[in-house]
């Protein structure tokens, strides 16, 4: 049933991570991202890795789920590794024409690969355990000071929520259209780039038309359910920080301080 899983999709559950306040999750993420980016050898990167192991373990989702979410990005990961490996100066280990691969290059590449992997898992933990609505509610709260500057934060949050809600629907639709065109002999996998792009036209046009039709319907449905742009809205569940949320933020803050500390010491 979950075979159509894509990045950024909510997976229902009742784990401690699922139940965390979305604002706490976002704050923790904001703290852990610099920690990950600053982490060097060995105590810092170990601490960051352990932190991640604990959080992903608490999320109650199988490791395979995280693995699969990373798959579509392997090109990016591999590219960043090779760039580091090739262009870090140092004693060359291997000569490949004008390219030298040095030991520090390999080590730095591996470190970068590991950090990026961790970042992706952090992103996955958040999107897997938080519904788009919770996420946008959290963002709305974090951005609420901007309302004073007349930034339409509430509306932006609603737009984001809808975009996230329709990701799986549009994926399904794209898949269906692709199959419909292929069953009539359309070919997206052969020929020159020009030909392939031309081949995509009969796929993109109906997709876009359908998206606009859906948007029309959706706007009407929202109005019928009494949605009004700019009107104040209440919440099903008021966001409330509990002890666990504070603990998570404090732990993450400590992690950042620790990583920063190791950085200053070495």
């Amino acid at each position: 049933m979950l075979s159509g899983i894509t990045m950024g999709q909510y997976l229902p559950g009742r784990s401690p991570v699922h139940r965390m306040d979305p604002r706490a999750k976002l704050l923790a993420a904001a703290l852990v991202v610099p920690a990950i980016l600053l982490a060097g050898f060995w105590p810092a990167i170990t601490a960051v890795t352990l932190w991640l192991a604990v959080v992903s373990g608490l999320s109650g989702l199988r490791p395979g789920v995280y693995w699969r979410s990373m798959k579509p990005l392997w090109v990016l990961l591999l590219l960043s590794f090779t760039m580091q490996a090739f262009f870090t100066p140092g004693e060359p280990l291997v000569h490949l024409g004008w390219i030298n691969i040095s030991e520090p290059g390999l080590v730095q590449g591996a470190l970068l690969l590991w950090r990026l992997g961790i970042l992706l898992v952090v992103a996955s933990v958040i999107t897997f355990t938080t519904t788009p609505l919770q996420l946008t509610n959290g963002l709305e709260w974090l951005l609420s000071p901007l309302i004073r500057l007349r930034v339409p934060v509430r509306e932006l949050a609603m737009i984001m929520n809808l975009a996230l809600r329709f990701v799986p629907t549009l994926f399904d639709e794209a898949r269906l259209l692709l199959m419909a065109q292929q069953s009539r002999g359309a070919d997206f996998t052969h020929g020159s780039i020009r030909e392939r792009v031309r081949g995509l036209v009969p796929f993109m046009v109906p997709l876009l038309t359908n998206i606009f039709r859906r948007a029309d319907d959706l706007a009407l449905a929202m109005e019928l359910r009494c949605y009004q742009v700019g009107a104040p809205r209440s919440r099903l569940t008021e966001l409330r920080f509990v002890a666990g949320d504070y603990a998570a933020i404090a732990a993450t803050a400590m992690l950042l301080v620790f990583v920063w500390g190791t950085r200053l010491m070495w």
């Binding site: 859906r214 449905a221 949605y227 209440s234 099903l236």
Partner: peptide
């Protein structure tokens, strides 16, 4: 498909009463 606004059943049902700005327990 085009009428559902939230990614969870409960949250979607809450959309209408939330728009009426009702207090949380009533929602």
């Amino acid at each position: 498909d085009n009428q559902l606004v939230a990614a969870r059943v409960e949250e979607d049902v809450a959309f209408g009463p939330e728009n009426l700005n009702l207090p949380s327990p009533e929602v």
